[in-house]
Amino acid sequence: MPNSTTVTEFLLTRFSDVWELRVLHALLFLLMYLATLMGNFLIVTITSLNQSLHTPMYFFLRNLSVLDMCYISVTVPKACAIFLLDNRVISVVGCAAQVFFVFLFAYTELLFLTIMAVDRYMAICQPLHYPVLVNPQVCAQLTLASLLSGLAYSGLHTGNTFQLSFCQSNVVHQFFCDVPSLLKLSCSDTFSNEILILASAVLVVGGCFVFIISSYICIFSTVLKLPTRGERGKAFSTCVPHILVVTVFVTSSSAVYVKPASNSPTVQDMITSVFYSIVPPFLNPIMYSLRNKQIKEALRRIMSRKLYSRKL
């Protein structure tokens, strides 16, 4: 390739170069980031301090909250910096780190959402076997298996991406480093990379999504047989938020990663990527805490104890 130069750093892209819009974008991202950290930290604190919430469901919810705080921290702080500062540079090592951790946390989050769907299936459809099959040891094993497989999964995709040669353009058309945008910059043959992404998306994302939908079909068929409206409402209030978060997460990530990179509109992909990198961690505390009576009651008791101790 004539006049080619090896890329040693990348330039990330803003949504706009207009200063006022850059400030607005940074402010929106920062507010969502702070709300996500506060909401998820609140869930971790409440489910840790309240003994009545030391159940498998809240164990996975607590882990999901920790994961969400890590996941959104990979992309948003750097994005706010490139919105506000003139420096859009990210090193190759920094870019590789972003790719690795985005894959790690996104993959592990999807597995956790799947496990939580299975947990609800066992609790609602197999209540007599639930205490035996879903015990603390099984929960710990599932968490460890999710993290270890996530490390292998993210390592595979990161290594496969950064073994490519990058030359000439170093502008990543995204506010963080993601694989589809990087493949557009490579002067190597990326066919095998695209096949790997497509295959893993079909097997992992598609498989988990089918598993989740199947679980909820069984759950809804059981819930509709419950004798009282209150019991049905409680079950639906637990399950419907889960389905909404999963749907947003899966559809937006698939829209970016599954279709061919050459046919991806840049602005559209940047907007779509917000829905799988920022929105799910932001929505989880809202879906799982503000609409959850047990968490609200536990929060009320904790606040009452703190106020009482201050008066003393």
Rank of each mutant, 00 (worst) to 15 (best):
N3V: 03
S4E: 11
T5V: 10
T6N: 10
T8G: 02
E9I: 09
R14V: 07
R14Q: 09
V18K: 14
E20I: 11
V23T: 13
L27E: 09
L34P: 05
L37P: 03
F41E: 14
F41L: 15
I43L: 11
P77N: 02
A79K: 00
C80M: 10
I82G: 09
F83W: 13
L85A: 12
I90V: 11
V92Q: 14
V93M: 15
G94T: 01
Q98D: 12
V99H: 05
F103L: 07
Y121V: 01
L144F: 12
L147W: 08
Y153S: 11
T158Q: 01
G159L: 08
V172E: 03
H173Q: 12
P180H: 03
L183Y: 10
C187D: 08
S188A: 09
E194S: 10
A199N: 12
A199K: 10
G206I: 02
I213R: 03
Y216E: 06
L224S: 14
R229K: 15
R229Q: 15
E231D: 13
R232C: 06
F236K: 02
S237P: 03
C239F: 10
I243N: 08
V245M: 00
V246P: 04
F249N: 07
S254A: 11
A255W: 08
A255P: 08
Y257I: 10
V258I: 14
P260E: 00
A261M: 10
P265A: 02
T266C: 05
T272E: 05
S273F: 00
N284P: 09
E297D: 14
I302K: 04
Y308T: 09
